Simulated scan of single mutants.
Amino acid sequence: MTDFSARARAALEVRGMSMRSAARELKYDVGYLSRTLNGKQQPSPQLAAALDQLLEANGELIAAAEKPTTVLSEEPPGVEGEIAHMRDTVRYFVAHDGRYGGDEIAPAAVRVWKTGQRQLDNGVIPEQHQRDYLVTVAEVAELAGWLLFDANRHDACRAATLEAHMLARHAGDRSMERFALTNLAMMDLEAGRPGESLRIADELLDQPRIPPRVALLARIRKGRALARADDRRRSLAELDAARGAMAESIRTRDPAWTWWVNECELSGHEGEALLRLGDAGAALPKLQRAAELAAAVRPNGRGALYYRVSLVMAYTAVQAWRDCEAELASIPPMFDVVSSGRNRRRLRSALSGITHHPNAPLWLSDLAREVRYVA
Rank of each mutant, 00 (worst) to 15 (best):
N122A: 11
L351T: 05
E370N: 14
V124P: 00
A350E: 07
L61S: 10
G271I: 00
W146M: 08
C157F: 09
E238R: 13
F335S: 10
P361R: 05
E265P: 00
A294R: 12
R342V: 02
E190S: 12
S249V: 09
V261I: 15
Q128S: 09
V124S: 14
H96V: 07
Q53S: 14
R35M: 11
T355H: 01
H154V: 00
E370P: 01
G281V: 07
R209H: 14
R232H: 12
W259D: 12
V261S: 02
Y92W: 12
W113R: 11
R87S: 11
A144E: 06
A23G: 09
S365T: 15
A360K: 03
E56Q: 15
E196H: 10
L184E: 06
V112S: 03
L305N: 06
R35Q: 12
A294E: 08
L216F: 08
S44N: 04
M186D: 01
D206F: 01
R158L: 14
A171E: 06
A8I: 11
A138M: 07
P332D: 05
W363L: 06
R289L: 15
H154K: 13
A375N: 10
T115I: 00
R20M: 04
H154C: 00
I105F: 10
L216Q: 15
L120C: 06
G301Y: 09
A95Q: 12
S235T: 10
S349G: 02
T252G: 04
C324W: 09
Y100W: 14
S339N: 10
R9T: 14
V137P: 03
P361D: 08
V374F: 02
V112H: 07
V374Y: 01
P361A: 11
A10M: 07
G271Q: 07
E203V: 04
I62N: 08
P68F: 06
A291F: 04
G278C: 05
H85G: 01
R322T: 14
R234S: 15
P194K: 06
A50Q: 08
E74C: 01
Y32S: 00
P68W: 00
R369C: 00
Q41N: 04
D52G: 02
M246F: 14
F149R: 04
S310E: 15
L61H: 07
G98E: 04
P68V: 02
E203T: 10
R232W: 08
R131T: 13
W257F: 15
D52L: 02
Q130N: 09
G278L: 10
V309A: 10
E196W: 03
M246I: 04
L274S: 09
Y307N: 02
L26T: 02
T70R: 14
A350P: 01
V137Y: 02
A273S: 15
L143D: 03
S249L: 04
E370V: 00
A191R: 14
A50P: 02
A290P: 01
L362S: 12
Q319V: 01
V14S: 13
V312E: 00
G59H: 11
G268C: 07
G102V: 06
M19N: 03
G102R: 07
R9N: 07
N359V: 03
V79L: 06
D240H: 08
L184A: 12
T355I: 12
E60N: 07
L51P: 12
Q41H: 11
V90Q: 13
V112M: 01
A138S: 15
T36N: 05
H129W: 13
G172P: 14
R251Q: 13
M1N: 08
I200L: 15
